[in-house]
Design a protein around this nucleic acid. Sequence first.
DNA 1: CAGTATGACAACA
DNA 2: TGTTGTCATACTG
Length: 296
Amino acid sequence: MTLAQQIDLSAISDVTPEGSDYETVRRVIEMLTLDYQSQPSLETMAVRLGQSPSQLQKTFTRWAGLSPKAFLQAVTLDHAKRLLGREGMPLLETSIELGLSGPGRLHDLFVTHEAMSPGEWKAKGAGLTIRYGFFPSPFGLALVMATDRGLAGLAFADPGGEAACFDDMAERWPAANFVADQAATAPYAARVFDPAKWCGDQPLKVVLIGTDFQVRVWESLLEIPLGKAVTYSDIAARIGQPTASRAVGAAVGRNPISFVVPCHRALGKSGALTGYHWGLTRKRAMLGWEAGKLGG
DNA sequence: CAGTATGACAACA
DNA sequence: TGTTGTCATACTG
């Protein structure tokens, strides 16, 4: 059975305005960052997209809560360095000491997490049933995967890339049993992408499936608050292996629950956005979108 | 063993 | 100042 047969793509519509906006927004961000030197005007970009400038402005603002110009401001190197916080590595330390996290309060979502036992990980997901579904999101089509213990995977597909996206995720747990199930996964999608539903009554349960080292890195990521960022070496220090920044990068890159585990808030020491599994443009989009949600 | 979403440093323009 | 290349490093599959 092919993926297209498993998934009823026709059942997916861009029901949220933000969901249908992303493709436009993505191209704007691409233009802005590709020729950041020439700084294309709103009008120039609108022409290239075949829209009117005012229409484009409206679309972008609805999506980000920020005008394109303000958005660009929010993802500059300069701003990124501010997100990184001042001296040394206080960010990860303080967020814990303030009682913001601990086992209950992690991330901006009310997240509780559990890790798979080493045995379960070694089995490559054997005996595990993973339900999945595709949903529109502010960052394009999102693939949600969940076990009965909680959210296990979140990925993004470019238009037409649904199958590749699914494969990318599925091969992480090759022995698992995958079941298409829009109904079971929909609540996760609804919750995760609506900031109004964050910090809610019920904690969002996530299941971290990975090696010991990876899980430790992902737990560190969960402690980064909204609107903040850390460097790969910060994380390395945090898990007690200050020289393992590069290995941290590799582990961050394998994060299966993107966005929820905020891997987009890991930056290079210079503040540069160094990489993102689902595309640098999307990482930029997430950081700018969050800047908009911050009240800016 | 090879690959990596790093980081530090040197050598440029 | 900003960009580019090189190299050491630690952990994964």
